[in-house]
């Protein structure tokens, strides 16, 4: 048996025909190691959900293969359905069943019982236990998310697929959730999770960017950041709008993107950042900017992602 929990090779899936055809997944290959927490990072419409459907045997690919724990997703879908847990995009729970009943239902579906899998769900279920008689529809967003995770775990799966598990959940719950995933991963479960939030990428062992149905750069967040090819200057001034325009015209600028109050200026290689900072200050003062702040900085995952997007010409391109 291989060391990989999930292997995708040249997976492709197209929807519709002719002019309206959408290549939702386009020749995707990647591997998830056993016991790894793997992140798929990409914006809305990138193809994450479709990719999950292909990997969980819910959809048959047009071409390519995917293997989960040694089972082919098309041929051996029966075996796969016993060993995976899936948490679809919007947490799918029965609003009119209680916490307990939802759990029992999903356990029974997979031929298990809550008692049998109590140990594996305990780290999460302990948050929910005080509310076990409450209807799922009456839980807070964070609680629903935890219940959905419990339901996906209740048959002790080997691999867990989580499609945007933190979307629409408050920041505290999001943090808690990633901590819980860490606990699960320590128990030996392989986890594939998608998210549109780039700041969550650092929580994963390895990540892949998904854009326009393609997957790129499977690596640790650390390595990806280290490979960022440009020096970065974070720039702020009073007039944010003209600042972006002016920065893009700066000689030596490769590209520039907004990150909250700051503009991140990516410089062409060659020439130190410190030297460039001085030239930039003079350039901006010349353009009539006030209260200028310029700081060299390390590349973040967001920077890597932005650059990636612009190369692909995605919709997040030149803002």
């Amino acid at each position: 048996m291989s060391d990989y929990s999930v292997s995708a090779r040249d997976l492709s899936k197209k929807f519709g025909h002719g002019h309206h055809a959408v290549q939702a997944v386009d020749g995707v290959s990647f591997d998830v190691k056993k016991g790894e927490l793997f992140g798929l990072i990409g914006p809305d419409g990138a193809g994450k959900t479709t990719l999950f459907r292909l990997l969980t045997s819910l959809m048959i690919p047009d071409s390519g293969t995917a293997v989960v724990e040694g089972f082919d997703t098309v041929k051996d879908y029966r075996q796969i359905r016993r060993i995976i847990g899936y948490m679809p995009g919007r947490f799918s729970l029965y609003q009119d069943l209680s916490v307990e009943e939802n759990l029992k239902f999903f356990a029974t579906l997979f031929g298990s019982t809550v008692a049998k899998s109590y140990d594996s769900i305990k780290p999460i279920y302990r948050y929910l236990e005080p509310f076990k008689k409450r209807m799922a529809g009456k839980l807070s967003g964070g609680m629903k998310q935890k219940l959905a995770l419990c339901c996906a775990l209740v048959h002790a799966p080997k691999v867990l697929f989580l499609d945007e598990p933190t979307t629409g959940v408050d920041p505290v719950s999001r943090k808690e959730f990633w901590e819980m995933l860490g606990t699960l991963q320590e128990q030996g479960i392989s986890i594939v999770a998608s998210t549109p939030y780039m700041n969550e990428a650092v929580r994963c062992h390895r990540i892949a960017f998904v854009q326009n149905g393609k997957v790129s750069e499977c690596d640790t967040p650390e390595n990806i950041r280290r490979r960022f090819p440009h020096a970065i200057l974070a720039v702020k001034s009073r007039d944010t709008f003209t600042l972006l325009q002016d920065l893009r015209k700066f000689p030596g600028a490769h590209s520039c993107y907004s990150f909250g109050n700051y503009q991140h200026l990516y410089l062409h290689s060659g020439g130190g950042a410190g030297d460039a900072a001085d030239r930039l200050r003079a350039y901006l003062e010349d353009k009539g900017h006030h209260d200028i702040s310029i700081q060299p900085m390390e590349a973040s995952i967001e920077d890597c992602f932005m650059l990636r997007m612009s190369k692909e010409g995605g919709r997040y391109g030149d803002v």
Binding site: T56, S57, L58, R78, R81, R82, I84, Y86, P88, G89, R90, F91, S92, L93, Y94, Q95, F106, L109, F110, G111, C151, A152
Partner: peptide, 13 residues
């Protein structure tokens, strides 16, 4: 619409 159908589909039922 609720999404529970996907959960059921992914189960061995």
């Amino acid at each position: 619409e609720l999404g529970t159908l996907e959960q059921i589909n992914v189960s061995p039922v």
